[in-house]
Design a protein around this nucleic acid. Structure first.
Lengths: 186, 186
DNA sequence: CCGAGGCATTAACCCGGGTTAAGAAACGGA
DNA sequence: TCCGTTTCTTAACCCGGGTTAATGCCTCGG
């Protein structure tokens, strides 16, 4: 953990007592919609997803995050609002939670912490930018093809109806896409 | 400009000679696809869009930015890659260009500049997150309704075929949506 | 070992967006 | 102002995803 962000000794000592380590069983919720949640999660083990319900009550999956990834209601933390999303463990998982407000306070006088928050923001931006690119350029079928080629390791760990929810389509449509691709490659 | 980012005197003196002020006529390109572009633009006047061509050669509009907005191939700058997008003036426009690399260098020793880059990244993240939300939750028709209610001032300035390209649909489909909404509200 | 619940597949039908094409309207330059 | 170009609208047809529903499979607990 410490070495992952290249945290110097001094900063490590100041943040260490504020870290929270949590374990989640499959299906457990780390964050519930509506909660004022102020921490950023670093995934040590397992796989989680962040999702919310649309107006019609359909689950919309925003992201999957596994080992080494960050998960949190980041946009809402920045806006100072309660979480719009739920964060749920797809597998048994372990997460280290970093207190955003404390780091934000320290960042006012520390180039290191300010730099870490900058890196965080840039990383999250790039992830969303990539997603925008896919929504704008790729059909559901092309998005799925990209997913299975670039994320094949994760694919096996995520049930199909959640992938459908990530792509913004129904499980039925994803099943049709799969059979279309299968007959195409024959 | 200076007061917009609340730039202190000392920092203002160091950045001032590096700023570039450009004017663009309607239709002019500020950035071309493939160019290694390393500046972040602050729009003083006018309206620009950023877009790129998909595999089929169709224009895909990523964003519109008007007075007070930031425009740049930000993701590519962060990744150190040439621009994937074109940036074009929809109206006659004026832009101040901030040199990213110089600011990035200064940020290594300056809390102010590091903080500015952090704020930049967070702002851009929030914009993309909002767009993800719309793609994931809203039909083309609902996206358009949101656009005309929340961005009504801009709507009049942007030709319809560009709005269609922003929404990820064809001009024909947008025209149909408009007539559907018109008959609905009767 | 059995039954229940959750997940995936398939089919039938509907609807909205893509495509193409034609005509109308708005715009811009000479 | 006039003409040509660009933009917008409308129509016809196709296709892919939504919806609903039936079926089959797998897993897990009793």
């Amino acid at each position: 953990m410490k070495h992952l962000f290249a945290i110097p000794d001094r900063e490590w000592d100041s943040i260490r007592p504020l870290l929270r380590h949590e374990s989640y069983a499959k299906g457990d919720f780390a964050v519930r919609e509506g909660a004022l949640f102020r921490s950023v999660g670093y995934v040590l083990r397992g796989l989680l997803r962040s999702y919310h319900l649309d107006d019609a009550g359909v689950e919309r999956t925003k992201a999957f995050r596994s080992e080494g990834g960050m998960i949190s209601p980041y946009a809402e933390i920045l806006r100072g609002e309660p979480s719009r999303s739920n964060i749920q463990a797809i597998e048994s998982s372990e997460v280290i939670w970093l207190p955003f407000d404390a780091i934000n306070e320290m960042s006012k006088e520390s180039l290191f912490w300010m730099g870490l928050l900058r890196a965080q923001a840039e990383k999250n931006f790039l992830l969303k930018e990539q997603r925008e690119y896919e929504f704008l350029n790729l059909s559901a079928e092309a998005q799925y093809e990209r997913f299975i080629t670039e994320d094949s390791a994760r694919l096996a760990r995520i049930p199909q109806f959640l992938i459908a929810s990530y792509l913004g389509i129904t499980p039925v449509a994803l099943s049709r896409i799969k059979s279309r691709l299968a007959s195409k490659s024959k």
